[in-house]
Structures are given as C-alpha cells and as structure tokens.
Design a protein around this nucleic acid. Structure first.
Length: 599
RNA sequence: GGGGACGUAGCUCAGUUGGUUAGAGCGCUGCCCUGUCACGGCAGAGGUCGCGGGUUCGAGCCCCGUCGUCCCCGCCA
C-alpha cells in the first residue's frame, strides 16, 4: 500500500477520490457500528469513518485501534453532509470512508497524549521527547526553525557569503566561558576543547581570502543554564572583509527580514541604534526591551530644599518609569508591592515612591504634574520613582551606573510581574511584537573585581575606537575606552554580538599586553593567530546571532527547550538518553584518565 | 555557589487545625451505542503521597536532611 496524501491535505476538491493515508491515531470515537478515527501526521488531521456495513473488516480492526497506533487507511474521500462539517479543522469539510484498514504498529498507552492541549510537566516531556515532539505546537516550532534557518542560508548565499565548516575538536578559544573538553587517546593527558564559537577560525578564513563567510554553527559553553541558555546552542556566525559597522548591520537586518518574512512578519529596517551609555542611562541595561517605555531621570527636577525635606541624597540620580496598564492596584496590593520592592533594595539605600504617595504627599504635590507629564503616564499606568536616601553608600559617588542598573532591573522585574495580567507582551502577529535594536560603543574593558584585573568586555580581538588608541587611554584610562563592538537586541534578549576586529599584529599584541597578558603567554595561547596576522590580514569584522533565541521569540516561547529538539535540563542533563553518564573502565584506560573523587 | 517555587493515581491537580477507608477531571480496561469530532452511557482497575530520618498515641500535612524539575542571582562575550 502506497501513501497518496498527507493527513492535512484533503479538501472538497478531492471528493470521490480513492486515497491512502498513513499516520497516528489521534483520537478514536466508537459508536458501535460506526467508528471514527482521527488520523494525524505532521501536516494535520483527517477524520476516517469505519462503517460496519461498508467494510466489516476495517471496522473490526478499528475496534482494536488505540491512541498513537500507526495505521494505514485505503478509502474514498467524501464530502460531509450539511451540518456534519467541522469548521475547526482544515480538513473538516471532508472525511475518508475506509475500505481497508491496516494496523501498521501498536502503541503502548502513552504517559501523556500528544493530542491533548494540556501539556505534561517538563520532566515527563523530556523523558518521552518523541511523544512531546508529536504535539502540534512542537511540530510547528521545528518547521518554523527549519524555515528560518533556510531563509538565512539563502539570503547570505545570495549576498556573497560562503558556508564553511570549522572544527568541533579544537583548542580553547578566548571567550572566557568554561570549555567542554575531549580527552585525546593518542596524546595522553591532552585535551581538545569544543568551540565556544568559531571566532578564531572565521578570522583566519578572512585572512585566507574568503571575503565573506557564514556558518550555522553549534557552540558549546560549560556554564550554568537559564531559560535562554543551553550548554550547546546554534549560532548564525558570519565574518566579512573590509566592513564598516553599518555593513554588518545591513547584512544582519537583511537576513533577519528574510527570516521573519518566512514567518509572516514584515520587518521595517533599519533597526534603531543606541550607544551603550544611552542604553544604561535610559534602560539601566545593555539589552533594553523597547516594548516598554524608557526610564526618565528627575535628578534636576528636585531642588536641594525639597530633597532635604524628602530625605533624598543631594547629588545622586532620581529615576522613574511606568509599567503600562498596571496602575489599578488595590490598597493592599500596593502595600504588598511596596514592601516587596523595599525588601529587594535591602541595604542599597534606595527608596520608592508610587502614584499614591505622589498624589497624597504634600511635599510632592509640586512635582506630581512634572513626573506624570515626563513619564507620559496615564491613570492606568503604575508610576514608580526611585530615590537614593540620605546617607547612601559612598561607593555610589563613584559608581552611579549601579543605580541605573538597579532601577532598570526593577523595571523589568515589575513588568514581568504584571506581564500576564495586563498582556504587556502579548503577540499580535505584526512587526510591532518585535522591537529590534543595535547597541553600539560597548566599553572595551571590564573591571574584574575578583581578580583585580581589566578583562576584555567582548573578546580580545575586538578593535578599540581609533580615537581611544591615539589618546593613550588604552593604558591610562581603560574604563573609558570604547570598542567597535555591537549587539543586536530583540525584546530585551541579546540575539547577537559582534565587532570590527583588530587586523594589525602590533595592535593585537598591544591589546594582549593591556589585558595584562605577557608576550610569552600571548604567544603560547594565540601564537598561531599572531603569526597569521602578519601575512597580509585585511580589515575584517562580523557577528554571531543565536538561532535558537530568534526562533524562540518568533514562536512566542519563553524557553529554548521549546525550539531545541533534544535539550538539556537546568543541570545539563539529557533526560531521554540519560547523559552524561559514566565511562567504562576500558574507555578510561584508553584515554589515560582516572577519576580522582566522586562526590 | 546562593535564593525561590514545585514534587499526591499514567497526566493535570484538590486534600481544611496533624485524626479513622487519600479524592476529582482526563486517560486506561470491559460492556453498550450509526454521525461523532474534547462523542455519549454503564461498570471497573489504578497510590512507596519523590526518597531517608525525626517529632507525635497518630504525619500527605510539622521538623531535619536528601534527590529531581523549573525560575532567578552569581557565572556566561
């Protein structure tokens, strides 16, 4: 028997045709002498009717059929009579009248039903991933993922990019995350590292004259997981020679527009652009969620006398923001929220004002109008103003950014709290759901308090701004050096990160030195790369974007596990195959490994 | 490494102040049913209350520990 159609394909046009469908039993409805089987494959569901009077044999087999049995049906497409159509199904205007039914395979009663809307807990879903993946939503997610990846491949290919593979078994790269290591059998005691990104290889491909490279590449980082972080993930990695930042931006906007188009979303380019400093000042974070209004600074709106009255620190910033639509709180809710937020501030010296206090406090009366107006707040919105209390920690005079970041974090936390209730992030299926942003001019260095060193904020191959090299800031004032580094941000999620690279060997060596790396160490770790830079390296730059994150947001999911077929748990375990697992003694011996202690 | 939430039938969950025999819906099994599409009706099976210890006359409920899943901070460009 040969399948002629998929389960989601038949329409009234095929009325009267003989067809063969194969698929899973989604549901069975037994009416005695009449049995309905809903047959499912990834294209959809078709109702099959077994009538005892038409085919007693098929009917008898249908009596034995159960959920998730795999069956083949030979029969005739029949337009349903008036009143019997099901408008909720794409195939609801027809049904297939079975002449012959084959049970191709039985199925144990599944622990949860792929046909149900209610979904089981993740532990069960991950253990029986093959059942979970049969669910319509998951089938949709992976079809979407395929389409997005394909659109990106096509766009980049058409724009002169070559897809080139780079090794999985390589050596430590300079991203700064922990490496997954692979022991070498041939070289006792030596290890390959799985790539955290193809960074060095793609730069060498530029030196090799490939001009434009891309790869949809798996990357590995042994760090703790989050909803949007898996130990292995997929990057759309690209690099080009002779670029300006804008060249990279337009390329990314191009392929994202193509990718979103396949998902039915028409994006408007170019994306908004903002410096890192602005992002911190207006949103308190380097990956602003532009779906929510920015913070507003009221520092200059309070004169010293008023600050004194209100017991607010004289010099430090006063920041406010609104959470749209979340204003209608009861007295009890308001009190609870206030005390929660205050508890969250702890010893930080921050305090909070809200709409109610703004209205009722006499001292604030002159300000209330200004605040409401500057925030463009309506009575529906929750208004929050954060003030540093008198006698705040001294460090604040040196690290004002901390206040912006803390208030920015509160903004996100409150938005999250009210998101569901007020549908703050509900998708409408238009470009409005997706707020893209380029963040530019990231700092070159980052102070590592623990090690008391300056680290590369992006990675050590990132080019600093020309001006900051000339001014000598590289060594005098590392905190002020800007990098030619940029992030692309979508709805508060960092989608990707890139930079214009250093292409001169002398500059690269200088940067290693400025990071406190001795020439010997640089040579030992990156000698091959410093060598390569000396053989005619063109100016180059690029970016890498998280494919999983793009698909997650497009699918309206909140966890990468929804768009990775076989993901790992928060403890990096694969519940289906039960990995990681112990190696056999023989394997350990061959790899020259011994377990020191198993705690 | 730290904080929080959860863990009761195959699944989703309820279980009061610690009290007798731990419940519901779905699913499952059997029987009935010719127009259902979350079919319906009747009957039935199904429990290591995550695990270990403690308090108590008595623990699903209280205490301690532990394991697992999820979320967050640290960490991760």
């Amino acid at each position: 028997m040969q399948r002629t159609h998929r389960c989601g394909e038949l329409r009234v046009d095929q009325d009267g045709q003989d067809v063969v469908l194969m698929g899973w039993v989604n549901r069975r409805r037994d009416h005695g002498n009449l049995i309905f089987l809903d047959l499912r494959d990834r294209t959809g569901i078709t109702q099959v009717v077994m009538d005892k009077e038409i085919s007693g044999e098929a009917h008898a087999k249908a009596e034995a059929a159960r959920s998730e049995y795999v069956v083949a049906v030979k029969g005739k497409v029949r337009r349903r009579d008036a009143g019997l159509e099901n408008p909720n199904m794409a195939t609801g205007a027809i049904e297939v009248v079975a002449k012959e039914l084959l049970l191709l395979n039985e199925a144990k009663t599944p622990p949860f039903s792929p046909a149900e809307d209610a979904i089981a807990n993740e532990e069960v879903r991950l253990k029986y991933r093959y059942l979970d993946l049969r669910r319509e939503q998951m089938q949709y997610n992976f079809a979407l993922r395929h389409k997005v990846a394909r659109a990106i491949r096509e766009y980049l290919s058409e724009n002169g990019f070559l897809e080139i593979e780079t090794p999985f078994m390589t050596r430590s790269t300079p991203e700064g995350a922990r490496d997954y290591l692979v022991p070498s059998r041939v070289h006792p005691g030596d290890f390959y590292a799985l790539p955290q990104s193809p960074q060095i290889f793609k730069q060498i491909l530029m030196i090799s004259g490939f001009d434009r490279y891309f790869q949809i590449a798996r990357c590995f980082r042994d760090e703790d997981l989050r909803a949007d972080r898996q130990p292995e993930f997929t990057q759309i990695d690209l690099e080009m020679t002779f670029p300006r930042q804008e060249t990279v931006f337009r390329t990314v906007e191009g392929f994202l527009t193509a990718a979103f188009k396949t998902a039915g979303i028409q994006l408007e380019g170019p994306f908004l652009q903002m410096t890192y400093d602005d992002a911190i000042r207006k949103y308190g974070i380097d990956k602003p969620d532009m779906r929510l209004p920015a913070m507003v600074e009221f520092t200059d709106d309070l004169d010293p006398a008023l600050r004194e009255t209100l017991k607010i620190e004289q010099k430090l910033p006063i920041l406010g923001f609104i959470i749209p639509k979340a204003g209608g709180l009861s007295g009890t809710e308001r009190k609870k929220l206030l005390s929660e937020v205050r508890a969250g501030f702890g010893e930080s010296g921050l305090d909070l004002l809200d709409t109610e206090r703004l209205k009722t406090s006499e001292a604030f009366a002159p300000l209330a109008a200004t605040i409401t107006q500057k925030l463009e707040a309506t009575p529906e919105d929750l208004v929050v103003v954060v003030t540093p209390k008198l006698g705040t920690p001294e460090m604040w005079n040196f690290d004002r950014q901390w206040i912006y970041k803390r208030v920015g974090a509160l903004r996100l936390q409150l938005a999250q709290k009210f998101a569901d209730k007020h549908k703050l992030f509900e998708q409408t299926g238009t470009a409005n759901d997706f707020k893209f942003l380029w963040v530019t001019d990231f700092p070159m260095y980052e102070w590592n308090e623990e090690a008391k060193t300056w680290d590369a904020a992006h990675h050590p191959f990132t080019s600093p701004h020309e001006d900051d090299i000339k001014s000598g800031a590289l060594f005098n004032d590392k905190g002020s050096v800007r990098a030619l580094a940029y992030d692309v941000v979508l709805n508060g999620t960092e989608l990707g990160s890139g930079s214009i690279r250093i292409h001169r060997q002398d500059v690269q060596a200088e940067i290693f030195r400025s990071l406190g790396m001795s020439d010997e160490e640089a040579k030992q770790r990156f000698g091959f790369f410093l060598d390569a830079l000396e053989y005619g390296t063109p100016p180059h730059g690029g970016i890498a974007l998280g494919l999983d994150r793009i698909v997650m947001i497009l699918a309206g999911a909140t966890s990468l596990r929804e768009v990775i077929a076989f993901p790992k748990t928060a403890k990096a375990i694969d519940l289906m195959v039960d990995a990681p697992s112990a190696a056999t003694e023989q394997q350990m011996k061959e790899l020259h490994l011994k377990i020191a202690a198993r705690s």
